[in-house]
Simulated assay, not measured.
Amino acid sequence: MITILRNWTAGAALLLAATAAMASEDIADQYPQSELYSKPVEVIPHVFSAIGATAPPTYENSGHNNNLSFIVTDEGVVVVNGGASARLAKALHDEIKVVTDQPVVLVINENGQGHAMLGNSYWVDQGVDILAHVDAIEAFTSEADFILQGMQGYNRDKAEGTRIVTPNLSFEDTYEIELGGVKIEVLHLGPAHDPGDTQVWIPQWDIMIAGDIAFHERMLPIFAGICTRCWIETWEEKLEPINPTYVIPGHGHPTNLAQVRRYTRDYLVDLREKIGAHIDAGGDLASSYYVDQERWKNLDTFEELATKNAGRVFEEMEWE
């Protein structure tokens, strides 16, 4: 059984402080010798994450703009996110082999987006089971051809070998794994950023690989049809009671719950308040794009997403 180091909290705090200071939106590639955007770091003992760019997917970052994490146990490795391509998945696997001789026994897709699922083709060729929420599988399957073509468009030769592979394992609420004495709980806490959002919780180590329910270094995107009121409710009623000490978000460096609360839950509450006041004052969709979001302009992807988010929330709240 793997045991966590009791005196590691101070070291973790130093790591989180150091990595949080590293801006990544304007850095094309932090790890040029690999298709990974950055080399995996050990967030706490036995839990690693290759932190993706906070910029949109590009050829330079190989589509690695989300976090690719893995959990090492005495009986095998669990990977969180298949990666944006087969080649990117192989690059992650090469790094795992440097850390441990244990085989990868499971890949968990945190949602149905391309950078979570397109690398599944590599992992299934290694004989690895792949798990995702039923809603994530449905969302990916319905758009798989379009998602693959989009990745091929920016990734060009780096898309070689990638094909559409859907997970062979699914769950609805909770999927529990006991591996090497480590209990891993795969959760769907409720509606949030994307259909089938998945969180990976390791209670004995007090760490959550939170996926896209939680953002902090880049502005969160609000997609068409997403219920932001539901996202806030999921956060307050399901995520907060868990209260993890360590959080690996879907994008950005490992941090803590207070930090992702500020830039996820608090951002959503603030934007809904601004749009609500705009609607009460008789404002329309066209002018809703320009509600005041200056409080959040320090976030990466602010320029790409702030106005879109405002419009999506207006469309949602107009009929609430």
Rank of each mutant, 00 (worst) to 15 (best):
A91Y: 12
C230E: 08
V200E: 00
N7Q: 03
V260Y: 07
M22C: 13
W205Q: 06
D129K: 05
V77P: 07
S287H: 03
E178H: 13
D194N: 10
E315N: 06
Y290A: 14
D300R: 02
I137Y: 02
N65D: 04
G63K: 05
K158H: 06
H188P: 00
V107M: 04
F140E: 10
A224L: 11
E42F: 12
W123M: 12
R156D: 15
K90S: 13
V98D: 03
K158A: 10
E304L: 15
V124N: 13
K297M: 06
P221K: 10
P57G: 05
L268A: 05
K39T: 07
R261P: 05
Y31A: 14
W296E: 03
G283F: 00
L118G: 07
V72A: 04
H278V: 07
P203K: 02
G282R: 00
K183Q: 03
R295H: 06
R163C: 09
A159E: 09
Q259V: 13
V186E: 04
L92C: 06
N243T: 00
N309A: 03
D29H: 15
I137L: 10
A306V: 10
E95R: 15
V313A: 07
L187T: 05
F314C: 08
N155C: 07
I279G: 01
Y31V: 07
G63F: 08
W235H: 04
C230M: 02
V79R: 12
E42M: 12
L131C: 06
A23P: 03
A210F: 04
G112W: 03
S142D: 13
A258L: 03
V43P: 01
L16W: 11
T234N: 01
I232N: 08
T245W: 03
E294P: 01
